[in-house]
Structure formats: C-alpha cells, structure tokens
Design a protein around this nucleic acid. Structure first.
Length: 492
RNA sequence: GGUCGGUUGGCCGAGUGGUUAGGCAACGGUCUGCAAAACCGUGUACGGCGGUUCAAAUCCGCCACCGACCUCCA
C-alpha cells in the first residue's frame, strides 16, 4: 500500500509529506472537551476530523497512540465571577459536587461519540488526574527562568521568552501587536505583563476545585494540562497535535512556549486544526448560546431544527466538507446529506448481493487509486465521497445488468468500498431492526407483498395497488423488481 | 485597530492557469400494468474592477462584503 500522506501543517502553513518520528508509530494528541455541558455540533466536527485521521493512519498500517484529554479543571469564567472555574460555577448552580458534573457530562460525551461512531482514543487522560505532572512542569519552567510567582500564582514570562524565542510562531502574531491590543482583564495586577498567562492559579475562596502546590492551594492554568499530559504519554516530542482552529491562540501558542521553556524544544511536528461550524454564518459556541447539542440534533428537539437528524447523517454532513473549510449549518444541507448518505448505504447493501460475471466492464483499479489519492491529499473527504459516488453508479449499474463485474473485481470492489465507507469514513448502517418485534413486522410485510405479487400475476391491479398504497401510508417503501420485490421501512 | 481566512450554479460543497468535481433539488428519458426505486441525459457557476498571460474562477493589485482570533469560548 502506498503510504504517501500529505498533511497541512498550521505551523508552516503548507502541506507537508507526513513522516513520523518512528517508522511505524504515530503519536497524536487532540484537545478534547471541557466537560461542563452537553456536546454540540462543534465537538462533533473536531472529534470526527481526528477520528478520520486516526482511522486513516491506522488503515495505512501505523500503530497509533491517540491521546485525547478531558478538561475537568482550570477554565476560568471571564466575567464578574472571576476566579471561579466553570465547572465549579455550574456545580453551584445545580447544587452538585463538581466531579458529579464532570462525570455526567463525560458519560454524555462518550455516549454521543459512540453514536457518531467516533472511536475511543487510546488514552483519555483527565486534567484533574494529572495535577502532580502539571506541577512538575510548572517547576521546570520556573527553574528555567521563564516564569515567576506572584501572590501564590505562577505566570509565564512571555516577554522574557520572546527575547530568545519566537512567541507567535503558530498563530502569526507579533508580540508588539499583542502588547498594543490588550483588553483590560481582572487579575492583571499580579502579572508583569498583560501577555503573561497563568501556569498555576491560586484559588479564591469560592473556587471549589483546588489542590495543594508549592505556591498555593490552587489549580493549574488552562494550557498546562496539554503540555503535561502529551509529554507523559507521547514523549516530549511527538508527531501530531490537533484541535479546533479557535485554540490556535492562545492555547496552542502557549503550549509551544511551555514545552520549549520546560524541555528546551518544540514538542510537535504537525499541528492540525479543524475549522468551525457556523449557524447562519456565525460561529457557534457555548459562550454564544447559539449552539445545538448533539442530543437535540438526534431528537430534532430544537427551534432551529425542522426534523431529527441521525448520528450518521451528521457524520456524513461533516465529512462532506473538507475539515479546514468552514461548514454552515442548515436544515436543507442536513436533509441533502441524509439522502446522499442513504444512497451510499443502499449501494453497500446492493454490493454485498451482486453476482459476478465472466468479465468486467468497470475499472476498479482507477477507482481505488482515486480514493487513496483523495485521502492522501490532506484528508480530502469530500473528494473521496465524490469517488465513492462513482462507485455507487457502478454498483447500481451492475445490479441493473448494464455493467458486469468479474469475481476478482467484485471482491476488490467490495473490500475497497467497505474499507473506505465503513473503516475510514467510519459510517455505519443505522436502524437495523433486529428485535423480535421488528422481525415479525418484516414477516408480515413479506406476507402482504407476496399476496400483492399474486394479485399482480392475476392482473388484479386494484388489490395490488391497495396493498402498496396502504403500506406506503404506513411508511414502507415498496420497490418492485423483475424477480419479486424489495421493501424498506422509512421511519419519520 | 492588528493577524488570519473566506466570497463558487436553486441549496450544500470540491477544485485551481487550458479538459465533467460530487451530493441534494429541478427537468427530460429508459424501465414498470401504473408508480416507487434504479439507470441515462440536461445546468456552462466561480463577489466587483483592473492587470499578467496565447489562455484566469484559478496568478497579481485594488475595492466591497462576511467570518474567526487578539489571554482563557471546539
């Protein structure tokens, strides 16, 4: 298999040929969710983008260690309730223990990810479980002279760092611009410069989650967890670091500075960032309050939704756009995705039942190289999907007897289609009725359609149409074929 | 204000110096007892104005509009 794989590196702003540090292994770290709320469409895009990467690297034969963290401490609220982290704040509102909130939303996140067929990462560390490691990194940075203590908190000294290093290398920001564009924030008086960011923060009395440290009872700064945990599980230099584009600055910029300060080198070879999802052209986010949670999408229970959309529809919708392009939400787009997805899945079923001929009138080899080429080019899933629809045409055309396929080609086509649709894009069949009830229902429909077939043979069109119309009314789609019939239940 | 990105046919969304993206919708046809499904065919789109070039949606410049980030929002 050709392992050529080109990735866009945010750091160089170029597409680069992927070359892992160790020949057959890949270490990747992705910023996971902050578990103080339900997962929304934005979380789905980030998770699916890096799930696609994880799946494709694995498909290419790499042994991948995929680390995705759970942030359960340390995010501050930037409003009047300063000093209190978001998890603590929500806990008080709901009269719950902070870890209870964390547990609830972690489980909810996992449930949603499972529904979206997002594979679990190899390791899913949580920030609260790595306080010791984070304190160790803060110490290292202090010893290296790139941080200072102030009133029980520890801050990264950006200006000192910038004298000898390039602060802003990832985001393209210049330190002079940053200095002249700072807005007024609370707690600034503790810092030497407005650019400095917290490595350790002293907890205020109302702050529920805090841990002992050499400096104060407090909690780690937001950027600390990723530096500490990626190093712990992937080493101080590793291949890929991913996350949403909104994390480039300051979060990932700070991570680079932290690891250079602590370990003396940049940790990450390839920085990858997925674009955001917009709603009516505007960014969607927790803080903007215009987000749609995944459970709302799956149930259709939201004022912006005309109907429910299944997890696979959402997955397909996201994969139909390139991960670095913005993607705008609309009912129309979702509905189009639903139908396209449906067609792809039907083709998969047809493909499994095709019968081979002596020769082939189709070109599987070209299709195959097209598919790999698309994925190899910075994971161009929309192009891949376009090629898969070429395959759909092939499959349907063979099924209709307008094209033929040899036994060898059929096997090749089946494995190709299966690899790309199910293993790499991570799509799956939905709503396969396996319950006892469903099976009996199926038998009853078969019975009725057999009666209809009899009626048709007797040219009793009245009875035949009556049965079909009634079934259609109930949500069954009846498809006549030369040798009988097929049917499908459309749940709406 | 600074930095970065975007503007593609009815909708979504690829692509990028000269050859069909693809999906959904629409229209015509084949098939069918009639439908449905499937298949075949049809769209000549690239924000505006200049420039480079034999050739630009694709490169350059200017303008307009939109968005993201700018110290804690995936």
């Amino acid at each position: 298999m050709d392992r050529k794989f080109i990735l866009y590196n945010t750091l160089s702003r170029k597409k680069e040929l992927f070359a892992p540090i160790h020949p057959n292994r890949v270490g990747m770290y992705v910023c996971g969710p902050t578990v103080y709320g339900e997962a929304h469409l934005g979380h789905a895009r980030a998770a699916i983008t890096f799930d696609l990467l994880f799946r494709y690297l694995t498909h290419l034969g790499y042994k991948v260690r995929y680390v995705r963290n759970i942030t359960d401490v340390g995010h501050l609220v930037n409003d009047a309730d300063e000093g209190e982290d978001k998890i603590g704040r929500k806990a008080k509102l709901e009269q719950l223990e902070p870890m209870e909130i964390v547990q609830r939303y972690t489980l909810s996140y996992h449930k949603n990810m499972n529904e979206l067929n997002v594979l679990p990462p190899s390791i899913e560390p949580r920030a609260s479980g790595h306080i010791i490691e984070q304190i160790a990194v803060v110490k290292q940075i202090l010893e290296a002279g790139y941080a200072y203590e102030s009133n029980g908190s520890v801050y990264f000294d950006v200006e000192k760092y910038a004298k000898t290093h390039n602060y802003g290398t990832l985001s393209g920001r210049r330190i002079e611009d940053l200095l002249s564009n700072t807005r007024e924030l609370d707690g600034q008086e503790e810092k030497h410069s407005s650019l400095d960011f917290a490595l350790w923060k002293k907890a205020s009395p109302e702050h529920i989650m805090h841990w002992p440290s050499p400096w104060s009872e407090g909690f780690p700064g937001w950027h600390m967890e990723c530096t500490a945990m990626s190093c712990k599980y992937l080493g101080d230099v590793f291949d890929i670091h991913g996350g949403g584009m909104d994390l480039i600055f300051p979060h990932h910029e700070a991570e680079i500075a932290q690891s250079v300060a602590a370990y003396g080198k940049e940790s990450v070879h390839y920085w990858m960032h997925n674009n955001l999802i917009t709603i009516n052209g505007q960014k969607m986010g927790k803080s903007l309050g215009n987000f749609i949670t995944l459970d709302e999408l799956f149930s259709g229970n939201h004022r912006l939704l005309e109907q429910a959309y299944s997890p696979m529809t959402i997955r397909f919708f996201i994969l139909q756009a390139h991960y670095r392009s913005p993607l705008d939400f609309s009912n129309e787009a979702l509905q189009a995705a639903e139908k396209g997805m449906d067609r792809l899945m039907k083709a998969a079923q047809v493909l499994s039942k095709l019968t081979p001929s002596a020769s082939s009138s189709i070109d599987v080899a070209t299709l195959k190289s097209n598919c790999y080429e698309a994925m190899s080019d910075d994971m161009n899933s929309p192009i891949l999907i376009a090629h898969l629809f070429d395959a759909v045409k092939m499959i349907n055309s063979i099924n209709d007897g307008k094209d033929s396929v040899s036994e060898t080609d059929l096997k090749e086509l089946q494995s190709l289609f299966h690899d790309f649709v199910f293993n790499i894009l991570g799509l799956k069949e939905e709503a396969v009725g396996t319950s006892n009830h469903d099976q009996i229902m199926g038998q009853v429909v078969d019975l009725l359609l057999n009666l209809r077939l009899e009626a048709k043979n007797n040219k009793d069109w009245g009875t035949a149409d009556h049965i079909r119309n009634e079934l259609t009314q109930l949500g069954f789609e009846v498809k006549d074929r030369k040798d009988g019939f097929e049917w499908e239940f459309k749940e709406k």
